[in-house]
């Protein structure tokens, strides 16, 4: 299988939903042996779920690695192994880094120091350096702020993970942000309005499209709020990103391709993924 929310969401989402269908104190085994391709977004989400099950429900997750050598190498390079007990060793100059909200530094809040770590990692050694990634820093802050404000039933309830993977073959940086909350359509703000949108015939993919387009007003009633996700899409459309994908609940959007669709299963939380070319200045 292809384990990738970005490339094969209809296949990947059921895999992650099944993994999240836990029974308290019953250990899980993740069988990756049939995975012939895995992408950084899926690795970040897999790690987030494994840690979520361990820390919240005491569920020990073990597993194996893909049989495909390239897939193993992507996992090794991603930063995945830093968080796990595994015999796999981390390479000296890994291509990826994964970070999580460090509650000892700043309890469940948006913090520029976290975003800085990813930007420093991704910009190291490239000619345009940090300038190339200034908008990405802002995107990460907006995502953190959204998790803090909207992901749970009260501010700061839910946590996030984020990663960057320097894809040397394709010449781009792949950013993933995993919001471990309820997802956009189950957020307190939007869930109250879903029935109204359904009445006027809007299906979820269309609602997400309008949300990203800034056509759905913020639940605060203040027109100047709720600009975080639209600003990422605007940046993508202006050429700052070469891809911007969102997967939340049972909706997938590859925004620049104008591909908004429903998924067969509902994934909790939000996964945002974007790519920045190494040539982009």
């Amino acid at each position: 299988m292809i384990l990738s929310l970005v490339e094969a969401p209809a296949e990947a989402v059921p895999f992650f939903v099944d993994l999240l269908t836990y029974k308290r104190n019953r250990d899980r085994f993740v069988d990756l042996s049939g995975v012939r391709r895995i992408t950084p977004d899926a690795i970040a989400l897999l790690l987030a779920i494994v840690k979520f099950l361990d820390q919240n429900y005491g569920i020990n997750v073990s597993g194996n690695y893909p049989s495909d050598e390239t897939a193993i190498e992507v996992i090794r390079e991603s930063g995945f192994v830093e968080y796990l007990h595994t015999s796999m060793t981390k390479p000296a100059n890994a291509s990826g880094q994964i970070i999580r909200q460090d509650l000892s530094v700043d309890s469940k809040k948006a913090n520029g120091q976290f975003a800085k770590r990813l930007i420093d990692f991704a910009s190291d050694g490239l000619p345009a350096g940090k300038l190339r990634l200034k908008s990405c820093y802002g995107h990460l802050l907006e995502c953190m702020g959204n998790t803090h404000q909207h992901a749970g039933s009260f501010p700061g309830e839910k946590t996030w993970w984020a990663s960057v993977f320097r894809d040397k073959v394709r010449g781009c940086d792949c950013f993933t942000f995993v919001d471990m909350g309820v997802g956009i359509f189950n957020s307190v703000e939007l869930s109250l309005r879903l029935k109204m949108y359904n009445l006027v015939g809007w299906l979820k993919p269309m609602i997400l499209k309008k949300l990203l387009g800034g056509e759905i007003p913020s639940s605060t009633g203040k027109g100047y709020r709720g600009r975080g996700l639209p600003s990422i899409l605007n940046s993508a459309k202006a050429g700052g990103l070469q891809r911007f994908v969102i997967c939340t609940n049972d909706v997938y959007a590859d925004t620049l391709a104008d591909d908004f669709r429903s998924l067969p299963r509902e994934l909790r939380g939000v996964v945002l993924y974007w790519e920045v070319s190494h040539e982009c200045a």
Binding site: G112, K134, C136, Y137, G138, H139
Partner: peptide, 9 residues
């Protein structure tokens, strides 16, 4: 390092 639109707004 950059700015989020929420900061600037």
């Amino acid at each position: 390092y950059g700015y989020g639109p929420s900061f600037l707004e």
